[in-house]
Nucleic acid binder design. Structure first.
Length: 212
DNA sequence: GCCAACGTTGGC
DNA sequence: GCCAACGTTGGC
């Protein structure tokens, strides 16, 4: 399985002095937004703290994962053995926490195509194995290698996802942005995270949009 | 611990 | 291709 990330963010590269000079000309950095993603990365608090709380009996929770269809699309998942894949390549701590500490067996997950036209939620999959260490993070030959991680003390994790069904019709980012019911979706509020929570109400709203 | 200088994601 | 909005690194 290939990493979902274009490049391993853990791969350190030498600084380029050219770019450094270019950046000096830029205006002073703007103030941070009121809700940086780091705020959501701690199970203890933040708007999405509920994702990590104990569950009611039989409670199912909902998530969204992103992938570039060029790298690994919905059709790749459908063609995979048992229509199942290791969701490896997550190299962001907030996303890792949602994946490792939030996702549980049987949870349902929207499959979102990013960096494509149009970007859209295209299918539904299911968590069939809860978080376990991502071997690509401790493989020096792999682009997703992270020297700070080790088999004894892994930093990065993956889950197994199995395709359940495609959406009746893709729900595009434009549709999501127009929907009042989806205005607070984590996908919109922390757009760069590759793993985000979805509330039950948002889940229903996306399904309804897909059938509309 | 602060902060400037990066690097990355991903929509547009 | 541009660039906003992040996350990370490393000098101090």
């Amino acid at each position: 399985m290939k990493s979902r990330a274009k490049k391993g963010s853990a791969v350190k590269k030498p600084a380029t002095t050219k770019k450094a000079a270019a950046r000096k000309k830029k205006a002073a950095p703007k103030a941070r937004s009121a809700t940086p993603a780091s705020q959501f990365s701690t199970p203890a608090g933040g708007p999405w703290g509920k994702c990590f709380l104990p569950r009611a009996n039989g409670e199912k929770r909902y998530w969204l994962v992103k992938s570039e269809p060029e790298t690994f699309g919905w059709s790749d998942l459908v063609r995979a053995q048992h229509q199942t894949t290791h969701w490896d390549g997550v190299r962001n701590h907030a996303a890792r926490n949602f994946l490792r500490d939030g996702m549980r067996h049987g949870d349902l997950v929207f499959f979102y195509h990013s960096s494509t036209d149009p970007s859209a939620i295209v299918g539904i999959c299911e968590v069939v194995r809860e978080a376990y260490p991502d071997p690509t993070a401790v493989d020096p030959a792999h682009p997703g290698y992270d020297p700070d991680s080790s088999p004894a003390k892994p930093t990065w994790f993956m889950v197994d996802l199995r395709a359940v069904e495609p959406l009746p019709a893709p729900v595009t980012l434009a549709m999501i942005k127009k929907s009042r019911a989806l205005a607070q979706m984590a996908l919109l509020r922390v757009g760069r995270l590759s793993v985000t929570p979805v509330t039950p109400a948002e889940w229903k709203a996306v399904i309804a949009l897909s059938r509309a």
